[in-house]
């Protein structure tokens, strides 16, 4: 397994994609901080990067990588290695490199602008961790989508669609339900809906630090009581892990039976 990981890393680090990925986060974070000159403003912009762009970049990059790694995969498949080892190794290789690229790409500029000394440092670390978790989730989704779709155009389209639904459409339906049924007590429904979307989970987790004052408001307090406790945190992290494990399960199941 470690060997596959090693060679996946080698392969990934060699391709310019990862550099682009790192560079994107580095430049955009740097740019934000340089022009806003206000770390609290920078954090809000970083939030948008994490919620919109990490899922998009992770799912797109993983899909491309999966299809392009086909030759590499075939080469490995003819070697005396277990199939699951190959596929798990490739997933870990890619998601770890993407998560690291993002973590460093967005983290270094903040260090440079001195956030670690401000009271925003906790929020920053929390945000970066959420970004890392989202990288794992969307990379797993991309791999699952790709392995089920031999046709790469179809796979790619489906990946983008999944991103669009989870990043934007889902919340549109969410708010519609909230408004439409506002006469009923909706807190439990709202919590359930949040648990079902990893992007919402990441967002709420970040809100608990960034917007704790608003969450202390009357209904907000209910959410704070759920997500803000150790129990709630554990539930939301577990839910995000499920969002990684379930696609991975399907991906590996398919990988075990797929013909190359």
């Amino acid at each position: 397994m470690l060997k596959i990981l090693k060679y996946s890393f080698k392969d990934i680090f060699r391709s310019k994609w990862l550099l682009i990925y790192f560079g994107f986060f580095f430049v955009s974070t740097w740019f934000l901080l340089y022009f806003t000159n206000d770390p609290s403003k920078g954090l809000v912009s970083l939030l948008n990067i994490i919620l919109m762009l990490i899922p998009l970049m992770a799912i797109v990059f993983s899909t491309i990588y999966f299809y392009n790694a086909r030759e590499f995969t075939e080469l490995l498949l003819a070697q005396p290695i277990r199939r699951h080892t190959i596929f798990t190794g490739q997933y870990l290789g890619l998601s770890l490199s993407m998560a690291t690229s993002f973590f460093l790409g967005s983290g270094i500029p903040f260090l440079f602008f001195g956030v670690q000394n401000s009271d925003s440092s906790g929020s920053l670390i929390n945000m970066l961790l959420m970004g890392v978790l989202l990288s794992f989730v969307f990379s797993a989704l991309a791999f699952a989508i790709s392995i089920y779709n031999e046709n790469r155009i179809k796979g790619f389209g489906l990946a983008i669609l999944v991103w669009l639904v989870m990043a934007i459409v889902y919340d549109g339906i969410f708010i519609y339900l909230m408004v439409r049924f506002s006469d009923y007590p909706l807190e439990k429904l709202a919590i359930a809906l949040s648990l079902l979307n990893p992007i919402d989970l990441a967002r709420i987790n970040i809100l608990l630090q960034l917007d704790i004052s608003a969450l202390m408001g009357y209904t907000g307090a209910i959410f704070n009581k759920f997500f803000g406790t150790a129990m709630g945190m554990a539930i939301s992290v577990i839910a995000m892990l499920f969002w990684t494990i379930i696609p991975l399960f399907f991906y590996l199941r398919k990988a075990g039976r797929k013909d190359f």
Binding site: K10, D11, R14, S15, A69, R70, E71, F72, E74, L75, A78
Partner: peptide
């Protein structure tokens, strides 16, 4: 225990 020479080399291009 198998040595395999595939049809056309489809190997990682960067290596």
């Amino acid at each position: 225990r198998i040595g395999y020479m595939p049809q056309i080399a489809h190997y990682p291009e960067n290596l």
